[in-house]
Amino acid sequence: MDTIFLESVTKRYRADIGRTEKTVLDNLSFCVKEGTVFGFLGPNGAGKSTTIKILLDFIRPDSGRVLINGVSPDCHEVRKGIGYMSEKPCAYVNMTIMELLSFRASVTGAGKRRGKGYADELLEKTGLVEHKNRPLKKFSKGMLQRASLALALVHDPKILILDEPLSGLDPLMRYEVIGLLRDLKEEGKTIFLSSHILNDIEKVCDEIAILNNGRILFVGRIDDVSIHEGLEEFFVKTLMGLQ
């Protein structure tokens, strides 16, 4: 059974004042196998975040089928096994990262399983230990990004859905996060991440999909792509319709 499964998913935004009707996702189908790191690539406005929001049931597709571990995302129990990191960090900014972590942990039922030590370990990994009792509104963008990542990991989910996890990080931090992702991959987690920073994707992904204007242009193993040409070159060529 596929961990993430999408079949002819279509999403349209209705026309509104100053905006015509727009098909954001057009007949999207792909699947992600358990244990793979799946890179979801595409230029800005391609529909990556929209797809991810559909996976988390924030947005309902107009048609098509979505399954996560064989269950539709509108059953909220599904999200027990999902760690989500949003595109722009979103959390209650007057709370401290520690409080948010313990909220997540307790709501997902992971609090008892994993104890408090794990939160500290996570903060250590993301470099936020010194800031654990400061409210999020005092965080810089990179810190927020890392906080988001920590929040996605706190309940030890089987599936990670990360929307642009590397944007806004400095090179050093990016390196560390990539290391973290590798570790997670070693642990056998399924990781679905969107990005437009291709070099880094190359280092962790097993599979990629290239999306443009709501259509999938390519799905396949990364080894098939980057052996004879760089991922970046492949990406550009695909978008320009040369491939």
Binding site: F58, S86, C90, T108
Partner: peptide, 15 residues
């Protein structure tokens, strides 16, 4: 607007 609702709803929490 700031999508803070995602923080709560990405947990196993119903709307």
């Amino acid at each position: 607007r700031d999508q803070t609702v995602y923080f709560v709803l990405s947990c196993p929490v119903s709307r």
